[in-house]
Design a protein around this nucleic acid. Structure first.
Length: 788
DNA sequence: CTCGCCGGCGCC
DNA sequence: AAACGGCGCCGGCGAG
């Protein structure tokens, strides 16, 4: 927000709030019931507005260029009012966009989030350092809702004194205001008054309460970015309102095929004791004839979680891992018993007296029954319930708790055939427990989207699984375009390479990667060429010819270009790429899961002939030493190929960490504070990328809703997954819309990264349902839908 | 029983 | 000296 605009919040701020019917699936903007308002001129005098008055008031706000609209999550209220007008044949969208264009929207939540980002405490209460909580309910994961803001900004915890009707305004729909109960009338007014008070406090210089010479608490930081963020939030709200369309038969088919695939494996793994077995319940009236499963209480059957996944018997898996990693000996704490008595607070000292001779100052004693036997048993923490001496051989352990790790990578690396098979099985389990239930929300109506429009880096997130749908496994394909429409997906190519290069130009004044990108040099091939010692031109020729060696070098180079700018080290690179969706085939034909640098670029015959559990100071799960050495070489070469990064990491990033801990995002000037080395290294290129995508979204949205001459007019954005826009368009319009989308996106990126114009590229593809890896398909000079 | 934490894993 | 980051969701487990 421009400073002069910001100043007028004090004089021309107008808080506006709506009460609506409840949100329902497939309906992001429920019908209006009433509104409320409060004006800066009389900040304590809120007004309750019936439907007609609310419409009138919103009209005044839209048409009066001096008013600043103040609200919490105000994009929602704008959507409600727009939808309300639409049902009466009125199009408010042009006026709403105009208001945003004029920078007249002040969202108290976004303002506080921007400030918290600068201070490095987003999501936490700076007074305590703990995660945000609702001051009245104590609820966590509440975000910057009104009650939280009132507590944070105004130090008041009485936001909801009259919220009995908060979720029931629909009941009052057709009753005149005079007849409403007092608390029903008070609640909306309180909201408006509180909202305005928060805004006025946010923009006020903190003076009166502090003695002369005192250090004022920082306030208001980053508000220069508020208008852009508020506008992006509005466009994201419009996208949310589209929802995601689910192809119900496809979900049923996916579930059936999954179950068919899993059926034989269930018996197989059950026989291996890999699952927990549900107990026979005492209350069950059926006679339990073990080992037959009881149909009534499921006793004897595989235990099931609430989402339908099988309960894994982690103790059994752990023991097999111990065997595989040759962990022997006896745990010195539980003496091989695997369980130790549960503890309780020492009654002698009530857990406080360090001199206590009963508990020896620990404050805890074993919980025992009257007969002296343990009341409860819990896993021995020292051996993680294995009963073995975990120090006798290297095995993947958690840094924090010392627990034996049993992730997919750990199972696969164990080399045990059944564990490798089980690792594959777990992928289907995740689909069943996480993604199918999510998809099923959309069987009757589109899945409602809830975007959180501002994270610490500037990026966004969605509640639910929206942007984490697996690329493989058929989940994404259950999301479809509406009938007669196609999805257009367009992502920036190598967005963070471009933004990092621009950051280096801005911060250091030079960047070899910027030169390369602008010259059309393929940066992964360049790094691959430098790794292999083959000249770049030859490297390209030989790769086009399909030569395996150069292909391998290029494959290994790519994660380097993406990972090292963030400060990644070689061991982490190896572990991360070992989990990649990619198989490495050794010279002897052995297939390894994930990328193996030692084979791809180290000339090794086999991966993992020598494993290490330490590299420098950090401890690791057993990891191929040769792989790490190759990754170190890759990192050295990366520094030589793009030498600006020495200066970037060693001088700039280290300087930030040792100094203010703050990075100022360019070109928006948004500050992010409280950074450690890795966050400081990453935040610049992530944030700049998010700024580019948000700018593109804002331009695209305007053409979609306002510009009849645009090829995007009438199309709708449905998602913005970080470096990508996904929009829906009529089939006949899809080609033209895609071409226009590309131009708008590229122009936005050029604006955010003005010295990398030649590298700003977006590539739109058409598809009838969500696919990952869609490509452009051309027919008669037009883009057509891709399918696998 | 609920809550919060941790590990694990999905995506960009 | 060494160090990718940003998220959300599920399941297990311990504490109360």
């Amino acid at each position: 927000m421009k400073p002069e605009r910001l100043a007028t919040v004090k004089t021309h701020g107008l808080a506006f709030d709506t009460e609506t019917h409840l949100t329902q699936p497939g309906l992001d903007a429920p019908p209006l019931v009433c509104g409320s308002a409060a004006q800066a001129a009389q900040p304590t005098q809120g007004t309750l507005l019936d439907k007609a008055d609310a419409r009138k008031a919103f009209g005044v706000i839209l048409n009066n260029a001096s008013i600043i609209l103040v609200g919490q999550n105000i994009a929602y209220d704008c959507l409600v009012m727009a939808q309300d007008a639409y049902t009466r044949g009125i199009d408010l969208l042009p006026a709403i966009f105009k208001m945003y264009d004029e920078g007249r929207v002040y969202d108290i939540g976004l303002a506080e989030q921007l400030h918290a980002i600068a201070q490095g405490h987003l999501g936490r209460d700076p007074r305590t350092g703990y995660d945000l909580r609702d001051p009245q309910t104590g609820q966590v994961k509440v975000g910057y809702r009104l009650s939280v803001l009132l507590d944070l900004v105004c130090d008041r915890t009485n936001a909801k004194e009259s919220d009995r009707f908060r979720k029931s305004y629909a009941l009052l729909e057709n009753i005149p205001l005079e007849e409403w109960p007092e608390d029903a009338k008070k609640y909306p007014v309180d909201d408006a008054v509180n909202t305005l008070e928060i805004a006025l406090t946010q923009v006020a210089p903190p003076t009166a309460a502090y003695p002369p010479g005192a250090q004022f608490p920082a306030r208001n930081r980053n508000l220069h970015n508020l208008s852009d963020q508020a506008d992006a939030a509005w466009c994201l709200k419009l996208a949310d309102a589209q929802g995601l369309t689910v192809d119900a038969p496809a979900v049923a088919e996916l579930e059936a095929s999954l179950d068919a695939k899993r059926a034989p494996l269930l018996g197989y793994f059950k026989d291996l004791d890999f699952f927990k077995i549900a107990p026979y319940k005492k209350r069950c009236k059926t006679e339990h004839l073990e080992p037959y499963a009881c149909e009534e209480c499921n006793g004897g059957k595989i235990g099931i979680t609430k989402t339908g996944a099988e309960r894994v018997n982690k103790d059994v898996i752990k023991m097999l891992l111990c065997d595989a990693y040759e962990v022997g000996g006896v745990c010195s704490h539980c003496l091989g018993e695997r369980k130790v008595p549960g503890q309780t607070t020492c009654k002698a000292c009530e857990g406080a007296d360090i001199e206590c001779f009963i508990c020896g100052g620990v404050g805890k004693v074993d919980a025992l029954k009257k007969d002296g036997t343990p009341k409860t048993l819990k896993n021995c923490q020292r051996c993680d319930g294995t009963g073995r001496d975990l120090d006798t051989a290297p095995i993947p352990r958690s840094d924090k708790t010392g627990a034996v790790q049993q992730g997919r990578d750990d199972l696969i690396e164990s080399g045990v055939e059944t564990l490798i098979e089980f690792a594959e099985f777990l992928e289907t389990a995740k689909i069943k427990s996480t993604y199918i239930p999510w998809l099923k929300q959309g069987l009757d109506a589109p899945i409602t989207q809830w975007c959180n429009p501002l994270l610490a880096t500037g990026r966004i997130s969605y509640t639910g699984c929206t942007v984490t749908l697996p690329r493989k496994g058929g989940v994404r394909e259950c999301l479809v375009a509406r009938p007669g429409k196609l999805l257009i997906s367009s992502d920036f190519s190598g967005l963070e390479l471009v933004t990092h290069a621009q950051n280096c130009l801005d911060i250091l004044g030079w960047s070899k990667m910027a030169e390369a990108l602008n010259a059309g040099i393929k940066v992964h091939d360049q790094l691959g060429a430098d790794m292999s010692g083959i000249p770049y031109a030859d490297f390209l020729t030989r790769r086009k010819a399909g030569e395996k060696l150069v292909g391998d070098y290029r494959q290994a180079a790519k994660p380097g270009n993406f990972g090292f700018p963030g400060g990644m080290g070689a061991p982490r690179m190896v572990l991360q790429q070992r989990k990649a969706d990619f198989d490495t085939v050794g010279p002897d034909g052995k297939v390894y899961k994930g990328m193996r640098f030692c084979i791809l670029i180290g000339g090794a015959e086999r991966c993992g002939t020598e494993k290490v559990t330490k590299w420098g100071r950090s401890s690791l799960p057993p990891t191929c030493k040769h792989c790490i050495e190759c990754a170190e070489t890759l990192r050295d070469t990366w520094f030589k190929t793009w030498p600006e990064n020495r200066e970037y990491l060693n001088k700039f990033v280290n300087g930030v960490v040792r100094g203010s801990g703050e990075v100022t995002q360019l070109p928006t000037g948004r500050i992010r504070g409280g950074l450690d080395f890795c966050a400081a290294a990453n935040t610049g290129f992530q944030g700049r990328g998010s700024d580019a995508t948000k700018l593109a979204l804002r331009r695209v949205t305007r053409e979609q809703y306002l510009d009849r001459s645009s090829d995007l007019f009438g199309t709708r954005t449905i998602l913005m997954p970080h470096d990508e826009l996904i929009i829906e368009a009529d089939i006949e319009q899809a080609h033209e819309a895609a071409m226009r989308l590309q131009v708008v996106m590229e122009d936005a990126l050029k604006e955010i990264c003005p010295d990398l114009e030649a590298a700003a590229e977006a590539e739109p593809c058409l598809m009838a349902r969500m696919y990952k890896g869609a490509e452009q398909v051309w027919k008669d000079g037009r883009l057509v839908a891709w399918s696998p």
